[in-house]
Amino acid sequence: MGEIDWADRAFYDDGEWVTWSEIDEQLRYKEWGAKYPNANRSIIPYFEDLISLAESFHLETGLHLSVYGDIGELFGAITYGIELNKTYAQGSDGRLGNDHVEIKTITPFKSKDVVVVDTTRHFSKLLVVKINEEFQVAGRMIDRKLLPKRTGRFLRIRWDNLPSAPR
């Protein structure tokens, strides 16, 4: 029988040892749930691992991984309850009830907090996710009908022009 690592043991409950890391994980999930009632808690570990990997890689190499779009989509699924479409599906990135949602991500290395939206895509809501230089993540959603009207296929949206009201 192996040695017990007593340093990580918190207490004995219901016939097994509960560790501090397990308690920390449960508290983090409760925090996500309190802040985001529609949170899809099952994908929180993937989001946290991916953002941590992107940050660590950047700190180590000065380079960026091509994962920020995925981080933005996971953030939308967790915080807004968006059901993501299959990878490379035509149309939008996911659904929120009957609404099709397009998700755009502002990466930490962009010089301007702007996204370009293809207005020919099929969506009724736009979620813009911003990952700043400290790898903190925030999101703002807007109905398509509230986007500025303009001619042409592409629309540039500034982060500062998006509403920051609660969901």
Rank of each mutant, 00 (worst) to 15 (best):
H100F: 15
T87I: 13
T105G: 06
T107K: 12
K149S: 00
A138C: 13
F75A: 02
L126I: 11
F75I: 02
H100N: 15
G76F: 00
G139Q: 04
H100G: 07
T79R: 11
E73C: 07
N98R: 15
L127C: 12
T120K: 05
R140V: 08
Q90K: 11
H122Q: 14
S92H: 11
E133T: 13
R140W: 05
N98D: 15
L126P: 09
L127M: 10
N85H: 01
G152K: 09
V137H: 01
E102K: 04
S111C: 13
F135D: 08
T120S: 10
I103P: 07
K86E: 14
Q90S: 10
I78P: 09
L146S: 09
I82V: 11
G72D: 02
L74Q: 05
S111T: 15
F109Q: 06
G76I: 00
L147C: 07
P108Y: 06
D143R: 08
S111Q: 15
T107L: 01
K110G: 04
H100D: 14
K145G: 09
I103C: 01
G76H: 01
F135H: 11
Y88W: 13
D99I: 11
T119H: 04
E133M: 12
H122T: 13
N132R: 01
I142E: 04
A138T: 15
D99T: 13
I142V: 15
K145R: 15
L146H: 09
I78L: 05
D143E: 13
L84F: 10
I131Y: 02
I82A: 00
N132H: 01
E73N: 07
I106N: 03
I78F: 07
K104L: 00
F109P: 00
V117E: 10
L96N: 00
N85R: 00
A77D: 10
R121I: 06
V117K: 10
R153N: 13
G91I: 14
D118H: 04
Q90M: 06
S92A: 13
L74N: 06
V117N: 09
L84S: 09
G91P: 12
V117S: 10
R150K: 15
Q90P: 02
F135L: 08
S111H: 15
I106C: 03
P148D: 09
V116K: 12
G91F: 12
A89W: 04
I106F: 07
V137N: 00
G72Q: 04
I106W: 05
L84T: 12
S92P: 07
T107D: 03
G72P: 06
L146K: 10
K86H: 14
Q90R: 12
V116M: 12
D93Q: 08
G139W: 04
K125R: 13
T79G: 06
K112H: 15
Q90F: 08
H122M: 14
F75Y: 14
V115R: 11
G139D: 02
L126D: 09
Y80C: 10
P148K: 09
